[in-house]
């Protein structure tokens, strides 16, 4: 929360310094937004604000809560039972993020038109999932155990392109897509049966990060790389 406050404060400061010199949309430079993909894909909410600080530059900050379920690709379980377990892992994530957008069309000022953007998310995640305990000596002892891990550090970085349209002079419709790298911090330990682990169990780490399609993992099953798509609706306030 402290980060969010700092970011918002920074943005208000830049707004007061640069705001007057730039046009925005008919003088309006402050947009309050929500991402429609958050409830649809991530079972969460995403709220953000954006400011036009230069004629073609917009900066923004926001936060999101997600509570996404992941199919657990436990290979040893599949080996034993022929399919992955029905139970899903839940990852509850709270993140604050900062975004910078460079609008590419100079003939129409921000916040309208196409843009390139970079966005960084920082947060904390709680994970509840399963772990399949393998026992090669006594296979009957094998079992699907549950585990949880709280307050591990989560990060995402997205870069891509977007397009924003203003409707009815006060509503913004913002579509963007980009390449996302997700990271769940391995140095955060979590415990299963009083044993500490420092990587994400449950076979879903490769899908953490991108919201629509993961190309695969990067790092040791601590995060995925893939395609993120956002569809944000906003209101131009002032």
């Amino acid at each position: 929360m402290r980060r969010l406050t700092l970011l918002t404060g920074f943005l208000f400061l830049t707004y007061s310094i640069f705001g007057q010199a730039n046009t925005g949309f008919q003088g309006k430079r402050f947009i309050l937004k929500t991402d429609l993909m958050a409830p649809l894909v991530d079972k969460g909410v995403d709220i953000s604000t954006e400011y036009v600080i230069f004629r073609t530059v917009v900066v923004g900050a926001g936060f999101n809560f997600t509570g996404r379920d992941y199919k657990q690709k436990l290979e040893s379980y599949k080996f034993r039972y022929g399919s992955y377990p029905e139970e899903k892992a839940t990852l509850k994530d709270f993140q604050v993020y900062a975004v910078a957008k460079l609008f590419l069309n100079n003939a129409i000022p921000a916040p309208q038109g196409s843009y390139a953007f970079a966005q960084i998310h920082l947060g904390r995640a709680d994970i509840k999932g399963n772990y399949y305990q393998v026992d090669n000596v006594n296979p009957e002892n094998e079992s699907l155990l549950s585990y949880s891990s709280e307050n591990i550090r989560s990060r995402k970085f997205t870069a891509g392109f977007g397009y924003q349209e203003v409707l009815l002079n006060f509503i913004t419709l913002d579509f963007d897509f980009g390449l996302t790298l997700g990271a769940l911090n391995a140095s955060e330990k979590f415990t299963i049966n009083r044993q500490d682990f420092n990587f994400v169990h449950g076979g879903f780490g490769d899908r953490y990060g991108p919201n629509v399609y993961s190309f695969g993992e990067w790092g040791l099953n601590q995060g995925g790389i893939g395609l993120t798509v956002n569809l944000r609706v906003g209101i131009l306030l002032f």
Binding site: F25, Q26, G27, A107, I108, Q112, G113, V166, L167
Partner: peptide
């Protein structure tokens, strides 16, 4: 100025405001 956007009211308002600004 030339933009490859439709001449919607919002787009025109944005162009005109910017121009007069």
């Amino acid at each position: 100025r030339q933009v490859n956007l439709r001449a919607t009211e919002a787009n025109l308002n944005s162009l005109l405001y910017d121009s007069f600004h």
